[in-house]
Write a protein that binds this DNA or RNA. Structure first.
Lengths: 334, 334
DNA sequence: GTTTCTATTGTAAACGATTACAAACAAATT
DNA sequence: AATTTGTTTGTAATCGTTTACAATAGAAAC
């Protein structure tokens, strides 16, 4: 790996052809005599020429970089997504620009603008609430695939979990195990709201009425989950089971349960979303809906690359099902 | 956000000046009459002009993108690093290209070449063993800061943990708690080897002899940790404490311990490196050396940006200390 | 009133690729 | 032999910036 950069011009001179010919050899090899092609290839090899992607990008008005915008890469769900996105992009010769928004619409807008300025080929994003609200079809100068959160208005590629169904199954499982006073920690993200709908639906279809004192809206953060859980269990008749809509809230809930020296599931069952390292390591292990994170990221990337290749194809919304993992934290109520 | 791209030329025409003047206004504002500056600014605003970063990058031969090369973003250590890197880069107007190598030197080389081709401003990397071995000073056409792993030969910016010291303290803690037969799960990464040195040093300085049957080299993966731990505990005289050099191995070790229904710390103590969500959630919680991950990532980014600004400054190797978190998994031997 | 200086502005050449177009040439057709 | 056709190749424009250099004008110095 030499420090000196060799340009197409130097290759052309060394091979005794024009830059156009070198470019043709490198792009498709069409319209070049085999003999010349050989000679150019050899020269490319000998000089260690590598095309300057910036120049190529400027000329062709597109790049091989895609953006990935998530709220926080530290959230295990997004960590897994990003790994899948990077893998899939790499396979197809694309690279990934990583952006964390912390659910901050302003930061998100800055990143989207930046990507525009960089001429990215497209982006995969988990949009903030504000952005979801303002979404109109051709808002962006590059294709976008939405993951995790649904866009109500707007015709856009998306990869989503069937959240209502997943929550319904998870809560139904609790009911079948004998739990009746089921609390819920929801968030105001679209995901959280859909999961809440599944929760309420499960209660109702089993003759249970959702009670407001058993439902709390919280920011999707550990501390918020911790605080809300304490509030929920420090009452006369606390829930006998707790349903949280993501793993961060579940961490907070578990901390609160430990703080009050309660036992899971005897004092309170605990179920949540998202497979994490800790969920199967704690005792009892946590019952949850595992999202097919890798598949979500992979599918989103594939959708994006397909759209980049053909901007006019009809949009596609892929809906995946979660997988119920039954473990000790929701053992039958004794 | 309009789809049409407005160029500096259009701004120049609309403002009745040359592109050079517009460029000057935008870059530093020097050598422009205040009145003209105002007019240009207003036009920029009115047309919603944003400079094309690709063109700028081509012309100036540098970009505002930095590369981040890690073995696997899913490893909590690297997740935290990447978050810190992205935050710090963002603050200074840089964006981050994320790359996973899976310890594959070939993939790493491909990424480094790609970054060269993209004219990144620099890169932060946790190099593979092979790359470490072949490191010579000016191998790369852009500045690099190494994190986590030390480069023996070569004068390069780096941010490292004092691994020997950290392991020494962690193992000394075990000894002080009364453990004597201390096993170790190491890896062959430079980090693993240094931690092993600290481990052996701690044993020796407390009159204990390192025994080969208590030391295993494994790939830094959960499954490898699981398998190695089983082998280590399924013997006549198993260790009374286990020291693992990273969190993935500890997960495997914990799985093995659960599999054999052993109790921590009564049957065997467990200590490791790296703070993770699960380490404080399992019962008993795990004693460990917490690395200042955020600080490592932040410092590495700062070093890189400083070097980008001044390529000739002397290199710096920042060494940080780990923090011993004493928890239940290493309670005094009863 | 000429000269010199400084401040402002424009012209045009980069940066390194791709590609429309034209040119050159050989082969095939009439 | 002239025309057509097709293939290979080069010339030069282009993408959107930045910046060296030249040009201009007005102020200051003599």
């Amino acid at each position: 790996m030499s420090a000196r950069m060799v340009s197409i011009k130097e290759v052309a001179e060394a091979a005794g052809v024009s830059t156009a010919t070198v470019s043709r050899v490198l792009s498709n090899g069409l319209h070049v005599r085999p003999e010349v092609r050989e000679r150019v290839m050899a020269t490319v090899e000998r000089l260690g020429y590598r095309p300057n992607l910036v120049a190529r990008s400027l000329r062709s008005q597109q790049s091989n970089t895609i953006g990935l915008i998530v709220s926080d890469i530290s959230n295990p769900f997004f960590t897994a997504i990003s790994r899948a996105v990077e893998d899939t992009a790499y396979e197809q010769g694309f690279s990934v620009l990583l952006c964390n928004t912390d659910e901050n619409a302003e930061k998100e807008a800055i990143y989207l603008n930046l990507m525009r300025d960089m001429s990215v080929a497209g982006a995969i994003m988990s949009p903030t609430r504000q952005t979801i609200a303002n979404f109109t079809d051709s808002n962006f100068p590059f294709p976008i695939v939405v993951v995790d959160r649904s866009i109500s208005n707007g015709d856009i590629d998306a990869v989503l979990l069937d959240n209502v169904d997943a929550a319904y199954r998870l809560v139904t499982h609790l009911i079948e195990q004998g739990y009746r006073r089921i609390g819920a920690l929801c968030s105001e993200m679209s995901t959280g709201l859909e999961r809440q709908i599944g929760y309420e639906k499960a209660l109702r279809s089993h003759g249970l009425a959702p009670k407001t004192e058993y439902m709390k809206y919280v920011a999707p953060k550990v501390e918020a989950g911790y605080a809300a859980t304490l509030k929920m269990i420090d009452v006369a008749e606390p829930p006998d089971a707790l349903f949280t809509v993501n793993s961060l809230l579940a961490v907070g809930a578990l901390q609160a349960v430990r703080e009050r020296s309660l036992s899971i599931p005897d004092d309170m069952a605990l179920v949540t979303f998202d497979e994490t390292t800790w969920a199967s390591l704690v005792q009892p292990a946590i019952t949850l809906i595992a999202q097919p994170t890798y598949e979500i990221g992979k599918t989103a990337t594939e959708l994006l690359l397909q759209r980049i290749a053909d901007p006019n194809r009809p949009t596609r919304q892929v809906m995946l099902k979660g997988q119920l993992q039954v473990r000790g934290s929701s053992a039958p109520r004794g």
